[in-house]
Write a protein that binds this DNA or RNA. Structure first.
Length: 287
DNA sequence: CAAGAATCCTGTCAGC
DNA sequence: TGCTGACAGGATTCTT
């Protein structure tokens, strides 16, 4: 679902259609999301010009004239639907509706309501309670192999679980953790504390590679995920292990690099459940 | 204190 | 065909 690359892609789409525009009308259809949206949310947006966007982990901020920022989290099923003037079909579960000065309607749609919306002064974005405790941005300057190793030091939990902890590194979810561990040839079962030195360096690089590739691909997609421009299922995701249980690793990697390379001897991609979540991995290459 | 389980919610899909 | 149950997963809260 929406992890860092998807959030980045959604945000870029919104940036392209809203930045510089004035919000003619704002309506909060329902406020009972993961956390209650503040009552004054719609009023704070209406009539204001959108100045720009900024992402942090799986959150992003929409900055408005007047010094207010809107915090958005997509949760599991959150997306943005764009409707041009005349396109009047309203998707189900549209919780926030914004009409731009050019007549384009932007809707925050989130069936499961695991997402959230909040307001804060633009200068206090990083002090927000959902943001303040986050670990380093994996594509930012603060994310290093040494820092990652330090964050993992002494942890008795499997590396899979540790990487889902947003305090260790911010923005990974279940999909890209599996992908990064595969790329780094590290078993999801390995104890987090044993990932250090060269292995930590490999993992840090793999995390960055996997995220960069996904952003470049325009974000990956699952089922009901929709691009901000309204297009649906517009590209083939390129996950190497996620969702590929039983597929031979070599075939899965055809044309995408050497991968397992065991050919017919490849045991195939396995799925297991860790901390209630699926992990996909190749038992031959990941140690 | 840390690690894991339970929890929120609803659409989708497999199986009968 | 229609129903039921399992499943998906982000992040907080609760339990061990």
């Amino acid at each position: 679902m929406p992890e860092l690359p998807e959030v980045e892609t959604v945000m870029r789409g919104l940036d392209a259609c809203l930045t510089g525009k004035r919000i003619r009308r704002a309506e909060l259809a329902r406020a009972d999301l993961r956390f209650p949206a503040p009552p004054g949310l719609a009023a704070a947006l209406q009539g204001r010009q959108v100045l720009g966007f900024r992402r942090r982990a799986k959150y992003f901020f929409m900055r408005l004239e007047g010094g207010t920022s809107l915090l958005v989290h997509l949760g599991m099923s959150g997306r943005f639907a764009i409707a041009r003037p005349g396109q009047n079909d309203i998707p189900a579960h549209a919780h926030l509706n914004l009409v731009s000065e050019d007549g384009v309607t932007v809707r925050f749609v989130d069936p499961r309501r695991f997402g959230c919306l909040d307001l804060m002064p633009t200068g206090a974005e990083d002090a927000h309670r959902l943001i303040a405790g986050l670990g380093p941005e994996p594509l930012g300057p603060d994310f290093t192999a040494a820092g990652l190793a330090a964050a993992l030091e002494g942890k008795q939990t499997p590396i899979k679980s540790a990487l889902l902890d947003q305090r260790v590194v911010a923005g990974l979810g279940n999909i890209y953790v599996s992908e990064a561990l595969f790329a780094a040839a590290i078993s999801p079962r390995r104890l987090a504390g044993s990932v250090r030195g060269q292995r930590a360096a490999r993992l840090a690089a793999a995390i960055q590679d996997v995220l960069r590739a996904a952003i470049a691909a325009g974000g990956s997609s699952l089922r009901d995920y929709v691009q901000p421009d309204g297009e649906l299922g517009y590209f083939q995701h390129a996950w190497r292990v996620y969702g590929r249980e039983g597929e031979p690793c070599g075939a899965a990697l055809a044309g995408q690099g050497p991968g397992c390379g065991a050919g017919a001897a490849c045991p195939g991609i396995r799925r297991m459940v860790q901390a209630g979540r699926s992990s996909f991995f190749c038992p031959r290459v990941q140690r």
